[in-house]
Design a protein around this nucleic acid. Structure first.
Lengths: 191, 191
DNA sequence: ACTACTATTAGGACCTAGTCATAGAAATGC
DNA sequence: GCATTTCTATGACTAGGTCCTAATAGTAGT
């Protein structure tokens, strides 16, 4: 009789669940997995082996390393998005891919400040001066952007005096304009 | 003679350097530290003990855990900053602490889009509707903000029709205004 | 010179969360 | 009934530590 009092799941089901469990909680030990799946530790280890899932400590190291490099990049990077063209004091283009973490969970639409961040950081990058900060900005979000879409931001310097530079940024998803803004950038020192 | 061929640093210097070394490379083992400081492993361990620095594995676990919770929070959180007061469709206040990763390395001034993000997300939060996106924004960065400063953003709903809500946000550091903006928020569905 | 003291090093026992390899038991397929 | 898959048990070994005890090196006070 195939009855262990506590019925077991077939191997492939367990393996699938195992993979998922570890994925959204990399901090779990084999021992905890064993009791939670009601099998022995060795079984868990065989499964991990077959699935190519590394041990707890390696997993943690991976998570830590990833974030050590990446976290900063999220906020700290010089330009939000990837610059693919840059003529100082003339034009610049960057691309940003909208991911799940950029959108509202309620409606799947990208939060405005990510589009702003892309445009703003491009406006900073385009200017050929060591000291640049944004003074004013007037922006418009014309179409909602969803996850997985790629936003292409095009910046253009339109005016220039000894202290201020005006940059126009327009962002597109598949040729459709989703964002436009005018940025007044302050150059030179002091506030 | 106090000469060990390779002169050692005094203890307090080593400890200070040790702390720093570990801080910007949590992945280093005691063994590596020992050879790099030219002392024995035990000495390193004593130092760590005195400095209250946990072992490699605990450090990695900490880094991993922090980021597991936090990384997403950086981009994914509903409101950037911490909401400390919220009257729907009336006023709202949030506080955000400017950290190293928010500022330009060149001049130590906060990137504009972080202030924008705080204000924008507060403007979203203040509105009592399931579907809200930013339509337009007109913002002004009046004073530069530096690392470690705490920015208090105050939002106020000033106008309201069936589709649009106007929100004014003003942000302060120690009573001094650093940012102000007018946000036109779209409510209800469709684009 | 002898003593007191701190700093450093060495050693052994133990820990966790694994690895790998081998062997045996249990359930299932046909 | 027997082969085959699947699971469990066992033992030996690893990294990167912990904690404790003990010995040594160098420096300072009297």
């Amino acid at each position: 009789m195939r009855c262990l009092l506590f019925m077991r799941k077939p191997k492939h089901v367990r393996k699938a669940e195992l993979k998922e469990t570890i994925q959204n909680n990399p901090f779990i030990t084999d021992e905890a997995l064993a009791t939670s799946f009601n099998v022995s530790i060795q079984t868990i280890r065989l499964d991990r082996l077959e699935l190519g899932i590394p041990e707890l400590r390696e997993r943690l190291k991976d998570v830590a390393r990833q974030h050590h490099d990446e976290v900063k990049a999220l906020t700290d990077e010089e330009v939000i998005g990837e610059v693919i063209d840059l003529q100082l004091d003339e034009t610049a283009i960057s691309i940003m891919e909208i991911r799940e973490e950029h959108v509202f969970t309620r409606n799947g639409i990208a939060r405005g400040h990510h589009l702003f961040a892309q445009a703003n950081s491009l406006a900073v990058a385009i200017i050929n001066d060591d000291f640049v900060v944004t003074g004013r900005a007037n922006v418009r979000f014309s179409k909602p952007v969803k996850a997985t879409e790629r936003v292409v931001a095009k910046a253009k310097v339109t005016a220039h005096d000894d202290k201020w530079t005006t940059v126009i940024v327009e962002s597109y998803v598949d040729q459709r304009r989703v964002f436009s803004g005018e940025f007044q950038m302050a150059r030179g020192h002091q506030d």
